[in-house]
Amino acid sequence: MVQALVEDPGLDIGLRVALLNALAETGLPSITPWLMGFLRESRWRHLLARVWEQIRTLPPFLMQWIDRLTGLSTVAQEDFSRMLLQRQAIAALGLLRDRRAIPLLVRILKNPQVHPSLRALVPDALTAIGETKVVPELLTLLRDRGTDSMIRERIALALGTIKATSATQALLELLRDPMEDPFIQARVALAIGLMRDPSVALELVPLLRQENLPVTARRAIADALGTLRNREVARSLIQLLPEERIPASVRQSIADAIGALGASELGDELLWLLRDERIDPHVRGAIALTLTTLRHRPAASEIISLLSDIRIDPSIRQSLAESLGSLWDPSLIAPLTRLAHEVTLEPAVRQAIVRTLGEHGGPEAFSA
């Protein structure tokens, strides 16, 4: 009964989609063949759709005359509704985790005649099913620059989510390619991080220095290094922080990665870098945040001195003020109170200081 309602073109498409979702949430594998039926398109429907697209380029009076004779606009409208249902059907097949759907999903993914928005949903469905045998086919599409970028991004993330470590070397090749789309490289770096294979970290560090790689890709690589949790690379990363040839935004991400690695043994070296005014102010701000992440208490006074440094973005200084709680000591009350009264201080930074004083200083902070 419900299936018949979903297929009824006379019903509102929103209701039909909601009913399809409700069926999928039942988790009944018996509906898999029915869902797969939504994804099997006849050549006749594709031909009609292409014909209508050509007719729409004609003068309006001629288009309307042809439509009255053929009713093709109604077919086109139902095709749009059907595509919405197909999107939900792909997601539902992933939700059901029914391996019978895998061959059909792979055919859809590889078919350039299928709308990209539908194909881009397939990697997520395959991930939900947990299929790893399709990794070679996914890699083939990922390497093909003729594949829609949205699809390639979803494939990269799918490979990371299913922890397809057999694809690691292929992903590294994409990262090393200076001609590759930087947004694809960013997704590839994220995928490598999702695989949680610490041994890959040693191969990623040299890429941070690779000047022909886009900044977007290098920042994503730094983020992946933080995710991989291989503390062996922490000392190599700290050596990159003062390198002016590396863009400041990349070095900020490197500092964040050191914090994510929990490399507290590098606290004194980071503090030394924080004091070096030759280093870009924004990088110093990121180093300061890393020191609070690592709870390196000797850095507190240096961090307070940065709160009024107008060369550093106010949002970074606001975060620094809020993070001082992790280094809290009653001796911080007096200098923070003085800062809070500075008229030139940005309101957001001042408010962050007041919040920190309120949360950690107690009554003494407001009587100072």
Results as ranks from 00 to 15, higher is better:
residue 60 P to L: 05
residue 65 W to G: 09
residue 54 Q to P: 01
residue 59 P to D: 09
residue 38 F to I: 02
residue 62 L to A: 13
residue 51 V to K: 05
residue 37 G to E: 02
residue 35 L to R: 02
residue 24 A to K: 00
residue 44 W to M: 07
residue 59 P to W: 03
residue 47 L to E: 12
residue 55 I to L: 13
residue 56 R to K: 15
residue 59 P to S: 04
residue 58 L to R: 08
residue 49 A to N: 13
residue 37 G to F: 00
residue 56 R to E: 15
residue 47 L to Y: 11
residue 32 T to N: 00
residue 70 T to V: 13
residue 51 V to S: 04
residue 64 Q to S: 13
residue 55 I to N: 05
residue 40 R to N: 07
residue 50 R to M: 07
residue 43 R to K: 10
residue 34 W to C: 00
residue 26 T to C: 07
residue 60 P to T: 05
residue 54 Q to T: 08
residue 38 F to P: 06
residue 27 G to N: 08
residue 40 R to M: 07
residue 29 P to T: 01
residue 46 H to A: 11
residue 27 G to M: 06
residue 25 E to C: 06
residue 58 L to Q: 09
residue 55 I to A: 11
residue 41 E to W: 07
residue 41 E to N: 04
residue 31 I to T: 07
residue 31 I to R: 01
residue 47 L to I: 08
residue 38 F to E: 04
residue 34 W to I: 01
residue 39 L to C: 03
residue 38 F to N: 02
residue 43 R to S: 13
residue 47 L to Q: 12
residue 62 L to N: 03
residue 47 L to S: 14
residue 27 G to E: 11
residue 28 L to K: 11
residue 28 L to T: 10
residue 64 Q to T: 11
residue 70 T to L: 15
residue 37 G to M: 00
residue 63 M to R: 15
residue 63 M to H: 14
residue 62 L to H: 05
residue 24 A to I: 02
residue 55 I to Y: 12
residue 60 P to I: 03
residue 27 G to Q: 07
residue 25 E to N: 12
residue 56 R to F: 05
residue 43 R to F: 07
residue 28 L to M: 06
residue 63 M to S: 14
residue 52 W to V: 06
residue 70 T to K: 10
residue 27 G to T: 10
residue 41 E to G: 06
residue 28 L to W: 09
residue 25 E to W: 13
residue 68 R to V: 14
residue 49 A to V: 14
residue 49 A to M: 11
residue 69 L to P: 02
residue 53 E to A: 13
residue 47 L to T: 15
residue 32 T to E: 00
residue 37 G to L: 00
residue 60 P to H: 05
residue 69 L to S: 07
residue 26 T to K: 13
